[in-house]
Design a protein around this nucleic acid. Structure first.
Lengths: 252, 252
DNA sequence: GGGGCGAATGTTAAAAAATAACATTTTCTT
DNA sequence: AAGAAAATGTTATTTTTTAACATTCGCCCC
């Protein structure tokens, strides 16, 4: 890496950098500095703001998460939030749907819940809120930013929660809920055991599909929140097995 | 809050917003939108970048950290990095000095170390790097963004590291190293036990002072990296007790 | 109901910043 | 040392931002 670019990063460590000032300090043209900044931005080392640059904000969200935050997901998360308010402690699993739920909690920021999670995005969403946040330990997976593995599972045993909140990758209305990741599945299974109640929030597109492993049967789940895109048959199957079904009208 | 501003925040959930596009979508002038964005930026809800805005990047650093990232700290961290390269696994404790060290590791990004830490800032600095990151579990303290407490300490027992890297709040050259936080101290003591070697990095201003609790004696520490601002007496005391002392010239 | 006040929004012109295209210098290779 | 390639500088153009002022809208009070 270039000597000058290294210096730019150094200057940024202590805050923001103004192009006009930094150009003279570095003894180069603004144009040259801009070119450096552009390169550094492409490498996600800095973020260009108007007139200058700041250190790249450590995003605690997988690349995919932002694009998956549809209005529908928030509507579903909101509906669950209404139901779950009286809870004192909840476990929020990793995944974009449960992250939406964490964001709803943070935005409302009304009740001092205790939130246990293995998701860094969720923890970072909530750490400024009035909730107490407990993070499971373990190996940090860099693409999903969650903590899984034996340590995470073992830590889970230390806790009991009123609610487990989870998403899923696939669901069959007569069989249960799937995830495509075996480590996640193991953790989900364990978390079901420490929770008094379990809720799954998912959009209806997940129904009628399978994924790698089933982590919960219908009996395991107390509450399912989804949109109104599932078939009447599916809805019957679900309610028939005793779980409560909440369907959000798609237009909400 | 204004209806429109709320909508702006919603639009941002899914990524960035372009002023030109969003203005038509919201049915207002660019000027009006700009004024909204300015207000939202003042409230640290968004960050304006050229031509648009992004969600406010959640800072995974205590407020104080940025201002404490002096050149001196980086020089010290760099010196330690040179020494520690052959290590395979290291524990990085919480604190602004060890965060500087994490940043050095991330910036160089050369060796695939295994890094265990109880510091979210450190974890977030390193998760994109070639290092494997392991996070201790426990309660997340919202001001320092670190994990402490019995769970964190218990997790620590699962690991062994080649190096412990820590800062300190105060130091006496004939007695040892202090921190002003009892939870941190407990964790530090435990981490000393799982490490083959221990290094402390600190600027010289910490010398000659005490803080709440001593977490390490001179014997516990193998390597001390600091600047050249400590007295000859202090230097003698330190080297006399068998630890290796590295002093960085202040001008570096 | 209308006058008037203040907030919100819109309009326009000027300033600042970013971009693009091209010129010049430096660096490296052979 | 020549030539090519990379880096930097220069200039002109476009885009974005700001500032200043005009207009509209909503609201309160008489």
């Amino acid at each position: 890496m270039h000597q000058r670019q290294r210096k730019i990063l150094d200057m940024l460590q202590r805050g923001k950098l103004l192009i006009r000032e930094a150009a003279v300090e570095l003894g180069v043209t603004e144009m040259t500095l801009r070119r450096d900044l552009k390169l550094l931005e492409e490498r996600k080392l800095i973020l260009c703001v108007k007139g200058g640059a700041i250190p790249y904000p450590a995003k605690y969200e997988p690349e995919s998460a932002a694009s998956e935050m549809t209005d529908c997901k928030f509507a579903i998360a909101n509906a669950l939030y209404q139901r779950i308010m009286p809870a004192e402690s909840i476990f929020i699993s990793a995944g974009s749907t449960s992250l939406a739920f964490a964001k709803v909690i943070a935005r409302c920021n009304r009740l001092p819940l205790t939130v246990i999670t293995n998701s860094l995005p969720a923890a970072s969403t909530l750490f400024r809120s009035c909730c107490k946040v407990i993070l499971l330990g373990g190996e940090l997976r860099s693409n999903s930013l969650d903590l899984v593995g034996p340590i995470a599972e073992k830590n889970l045993e230390e806790y009991h929660v009123d609610w487990l909140i989870s998403g899923c990758d696939a669901a069959l209305s007569d069989y249960g809920f799937y995830t495509s990741d075996i480590s996640v599945s193991n953790l989900e299974k364990k978390s079901l055991r420490i929770a008094s109640h379990a809720a799954i929030i998912t959009d209806s597109s997940k129904f009628g599909r399978r994924a790698l492993t089933r982590f919960a049967t219908l009996d395991d789940i107390d509450l399912l929140v989804t949109d109104d895109g599932i078939s009447p048959d599916d809805a019957n199957n679900l309610t028939g097995s005793g779980l409560e079904l909440i369907q959000i009208p798609a237009g909400t």
